[in-house]
Structures are given as structure tokens and as C-alpha cells.
Design a protein around this nucleic acid. Sequence first.
DNA 1: CGTCTATTTGAGATGCGTCAACCGTTGTGG
DNA 2: CCACAACGGTTGACGCATCTCAAATAGACG
Lengths: 238, 238
Amino acid sequence: MLSPAPTAVSRQPATLKFIGGDTDELPGLDQRLAKALLRRIEAKEFVFAEGDPATHLYQVETGAVALYKVLCDGRRQVLGFAYPGDFIGLGAQDEHVVNAQAIKPTRLRCLPLSALSQIARQDPRLGFRLYEALASELAATRELLLTTGQRSACERLVAFLLALSRRNARKGQDPLAFDLPMTRTDIADFLGLTIETVSRTFTKLRTLGLIELPHASRVRLLDIERLKSMEGNEADAA
Amino acid sequence: MLSPAPTAVSRQPATLKFIGGDTDELPGLDQRLAKALLRRIEAKEFVFAEGDPATHLYQVETGAVALYKVLCDGRRQVLGFAYPGDFIGLGAQDEHVVNAQAIKPTRLRCLPLSALSQIARQDPRLGFRLYEALASELAATRELLLTTGQRSACERLVAFLLALSRRNARKGQDPLAFDLPMTRTDIADFLGLTIETVSRTFTKLRTLGLIELPHASRVRLLDIERLKSMEGNEADAA
DNA sequence: CGTCTATTTGAGATGCGTCAACCGTTGTGG
DNA sequence: CCACAACGGTTGACGCATCTCAAATAGACG
């Protein structure tokens, strides 16, 4: 787990040894999701807001969603981004404690929690799958905490880009060139920086010949090894 | 959830609506814990380290434990503190991804994951209790992320003190005067600051008449209302 | 083409980090 | 019982990374 993983739920298989059993595929859940209500929302629309009653579990089908919390004076901390395949709404109790807002036109599968309950009774492995998903999200959040708490602006942006690169590699997409679906403001609020610092750091990386920026929203990583060496690696390196 | 909650697992009851059922008390787990192996460790000893195989779930009985991650150059991010009643080792997959180190002499109940598995089979509510505990830990980590990413040094320290105060209130202890079991270094690495800044900020709060520091490790909150107003509140205030 | 928004760039201010010295407490050995 | 070392904490002076404020530029869209 090296990445600040800007994901709501990373999908790496994670075996719960004390339970045993393969929970990677759950026909019950997948069937339900395939039949579930499809919701289409525009960029900037909310999936749900802080304080809303938690009614559904959502899975992103296309698009992207930002999860964030805000302070009363408007300061905002983006906690993660959810991409296709990711679940949103996990770990909520009665009410959502974060905001989930689309950052581009998005299609969502909506699964009522009552249906989830039903599937869970039929197939107890669902509970462990949800547990794993939650554990992955916790791991990603801890990673981001390490990043915002300890790394410099440049290290933060590099870690962010490398996390996107790794995600693409996992999904079989190009790990060296990709679009950034989020604005500079979203990136800034994710990394605990200002948009000006994010922008300046992008140009610094470009000037150093480490990345290319064909458009503001598209990156190409030119020297991934040097980028990795700038990331501020974790200690164990196991 | 207003606090940066320096806890590994906060113990507030949290109902999983889509499951239903009261999971607050689990005779199976509690009986097992009571019989579980008791481990005593000194300050600075590890409960486990990053990369260790995950073998047990631990519950702090007395003392306190810090959870943290480190970068290869030694920078450290404390993710939380575990106090009596808190669980440690939740959400781990095969290997622990964080370090857990006692910050004072500590007694731990050690529950082998195999025993956990056994209890889970006997009583499926255990799975949901673990899910809830993990969700609480995620909520606390998100809170801390908001703090380190968006708040000033002063706001961070105030949020930290108020979180300890709230924890004491929940436990029926004095919310206005308490010991700080951790060092300034631990606090600094928790809040993403340096020890000098933490020390100066303590002094500033003392000078402003907001707190008293009889010893370095004891605080008394003199004007909790004003402290709350300095915390940088969250938006919803629901 | 014009407007609106997002992004970039610049100049200056500042909060926090760095480096260094000092202080108080604790524990240890003479 | 005292001397001293080790450690954690406090305070000061200074520098710098990042923030703030401001303006220019580039893209997107009607």
C-alpha cells in the first residue's frame, strides 16, 4: 500500500484470514447491482450530502465522484475520488457524514440498504466483502493522511499522480498518460494545498521534464522512475 | 462526529440500519476477551510493527498505544491513539500496515484471529460489530484528515484537546482536566506539526487564559466555550 | 465573437519549520 | 545525598515554503 489512493474503495483483493473463503465474487450482489436502479447525474450534482439519511449503497458505473467534508467557513477537505467500479456510501451509519458530489456526468447503480440486508442474509460472505471494502478505504485514507501531514507540496502532487498511474495500471489502462477528471480546486482540497500551489507545482514538474500537460486536464508521465524517487517513500518497502 | 478523535476505535454505538439488531453486547466476544491472554508491555514496546503478520486482535485494558506510519526518511504520521477499551489491529489483512507502539506501560487482551473466526461463526453479529468498529475508525481518520489538511496549528491543537475532552465526557471522566499520556513529539506527529510549534501553541493557549498546564503532561481547559469557537467547526452543525 | 470559468503567473506577506540554546525532571551511580 | 547525564519540553532568531492577493491567459460554450 504505497499510494494515497484517491479512491473511495480500492478493489484489491484482501483476504480476511480469520474468516477464510473467497469473497471476490458474489453472484447475489453482482446480480442485484446489474438489476439495480441506474441513476444519472450531472457534474456538480450530489449523490448525497452530509446529514442525509443513508438509504443506498452506490456503485460508480461511469464518471467520477468526489467525497469531502467541509468546515463552516468553507474550507474543504476532499477525502477521495470514486471511479468506475468503486462503491460509495460504505461505513455510513444512520446519516451520511460526508458529501458525495459528481465531478463529471456520472452513472450510478443504486442498491437500497434493505436489499443489501437481504443479500447479506442469503450470503454471509457479503458482510466480509463489505468489511474488506471498508478496510481498503481506511487504508487509503491513512495513506492520504500521511501525505497531507508529512509530505511537501511537490511530494504530495507526485504521490497523487503516481496513485492515479497505479490505479490505471491495475485496470489495464495506460499508466503513463491519463485524464484528470477533477479540477485544480479538487486536487488542492484533496492534498491540503491551494490551487495556486497545485498549479505552480504542475509547472515545476513540467519544467523539470518529469511530466507533460497537453491540456490542463491531461497528464503524461515522462520519467516515472524519477517521479517515484521524489514521492517520499514509505519506510518498510517490504 | 466533530472530533479528530485520537482513538483507534471509538466506542459510540453505531447502528447498521440495513442489518438491524443490537450489537452492543456480544457475550461470546466479551467472554473470550475476559479469558484471553493478557500481555503486558512497557512504554515504547511494539504491539506489532508494519509488515508483521496479523495474528491477533488486541483490546487495550490499561495504558495507551500510538498507531503510526513512517516514511523512509523518518517522518512519521501518528494515525491515532488507542485508550482502554479500544481495539487495535482491525482492518488488517495478511500483514499489519501500521505500527502500534505503547506510549506508556500497557496491558492488552490478545484474541487470536482464529478465535475471532470461531466466535463469528457462532454469532454473526460479531461481523457487524467489527464492521461498526472499522467504520468508526474510518470516521475518526477522516476527521483527522480534515484537521491536518485544513486547520491552522492553533485550531489543530484545540481540536485535539477538545477531542480528548469529549472522550473523557463519554467515559464519565472529567472533561475539563486530564493527563496527556503522549509526548509533544507524538502530538506533533499526530497533528502534522513540529514539537516546537506544538509547544509554542500550548504556551499561546495558556497565555490567552484558555488552558492551564500544571505539568507538561496535564491540561485543564479554562474556557471551553471559547476553545470550541476556535476549533474551526464543521459545516453541517446538525 | 463574447462571456464565463478554470488555470496560470507574479509579487508580497506570513505561519510554520529549522537550528540552536536553555531549562526542568528523572533516573543513576559515586 | 549529591553530581551528572539523559531526556523531554520551552523559548528565541531566522529562513523559507506555502498562502494571499491580484492580474493575465487560456479554454469552453453559447
